[in-house]
């Protein structure tokens, strides 16, 4: 599991942005694009190279108190995102 004091940052050349035409957030990278669902987008919004995983969990738990197991979702996201090399950890 990703240690909570690690700071995720987007891999160089990867960009997260809102696409009005597709009405969703996307991750853009060399010659590719992935449409993101709402939960992934909420996490990506907080990946700024300053907040560590603990801060991201605290932020989202506070904003979405009714979502059970949000920390597990965030850990799972970190696993996938780093296995895909979308993010690095500082």
């Amino acid at each position: 599991m990703t240690p909570v004091d690690k700071v995720p940052v987007l891999r160089r050349g990867y960009r997260f942005q809102w696409e009005p035409a597709q009405a969703c957030h996307v991750l853009l990278y060399p010659e590719g694009m992935i449409k993101l669902n709402d939960s992934a987008s909420e996490i990506f919004k907080l990946i700024d190279g300053r907040q560590d995983v603990a801060a991201i969990i605290a932020n989202l738990s506070e904003r979405f108190p009714d979502v059970p197991g949000i920390d597990e979702d965030i850990f799972a996201f970190m696993e996938v995102a780093s296995a895909q090399f979308w993010i690095d950890f500082l």
Partner: peptide, 9 residues
């Protein structure tokens, strides 16, 4: 871009 293009080569 207005039509939705996001990748430009």
């Amino acid at each position: 871009r207005e039509m939705g293009a996001a990748q430009l080569g």
